[in-house]
Design a protein around this nucleic acid. Sequence first.
DNA 1: CCACATGATTCCTA
DNA 2: TAGGAATCATGTGG
Length: 374
Amino acid sequence: MDAPPRPAPPPPAPRGPATSDVLQQIMAITDQSLDEAQARKHALNCHRMKPALFSVLCEIKEKTAVSIHGIQEEDPPHAQLTRLDNMLLAEGVSRPEKRERGGPAAVAGTATPGGCPNDNSIEHSDYRAKLSQIRQIYHSELEKYEQACHEFTTHVTNLLREQSRMRPVSPKEIERMVGVIHSKFSAIQMQLKQSTCEAVMTLRSRFLDARRKRQNFSKQATEVLNEYFYSHLSNPYPSEEAKEELARKGGITVSQVSNWFGNKRIRYKKNMRKFQEEATIYTGKTATETTEVGVPGNHTSCPPTPSYGLSGPFTLTSTGGAFLTLQTLASLRPSPGGASLQSQARGCWQGGTPPLSTTSPAGDPGNVTSDAFH
DNA sequence: CCACATGATTCCTA
DNA sequence: TAGGAATCATGTGG
């Protein structure tokens, strides 16, 4: 039935027998020891028929390679990678660590007008430290991956080049292999980027977005704010400059100053009786300071908000205990020059309506202390 | 644990 | 857009 395959059919082509001979030798190599194989390899390399055989193999390879080409490539995870990259860039992770304004000074003077909206002094610096940690880890890992990728690529390329002496390996094939390696490594990189993004997000939610996480202000901050508040009781609307100054002095942010004044005004108005004692303390305090420094109403000595002007009501309130009486007095006082700014302001803000535009905090610093004009 | 104090946020208005 | 009012959530003292 089945005739055994003929060992060597005599093909007409002149190189027929030679080819099969070489092939047989190749096959035999696997059965031999390493040294033997090495010697055989060398012999094969020097064989006069080697170039011919090689070209045949190349031809076959060329044909099969086409079908392989179609299979590879065409996977666009680029979109996600771009997203991750953008995210990391936006979070400041991708950048190699940017130095922010003055190191230690940044803690003391955190009032940074026009700064980042989340500039919450200590907490923010803590956040930055953690972010910096993440950044460092990210970059070191990235570097490791890149190095590994490079090493592996070089290794594989060398291997293929080495092999190209034995079998047909086109430069294109090497290129393709390098591409495969790169895509594998970039998949790993993507994972790294993804987990870094997650870490940053967690950090954000823990620090910056923890809205309700609050800390009571330092004593100094509270004092600075209270002093300003009670010395400008007739118009407790600090200008932007005044806020900045208060923020600087209290080691808090401008928005915190705004919050504080907003809360204070409303709580004071709601329960003046409760704040009476506090008012006495601060007005008394400012009074002494006034005599000491000689700049009433400006115990915070904020240059941009020269609330000089021996504010009528303030001068009076500075006598201490007569606080409520003074309020009444102030509101009843006829205003010289027609515009009873202070009574207006006072009447307004305590009466539940916002201050008139004439005394609006948006005005120049001088207006803030409109009570100082009398 | 509770009540109160207080900083922060949200919504609304002028 | 700043400020008022209400509310939330945390800190703090008893």
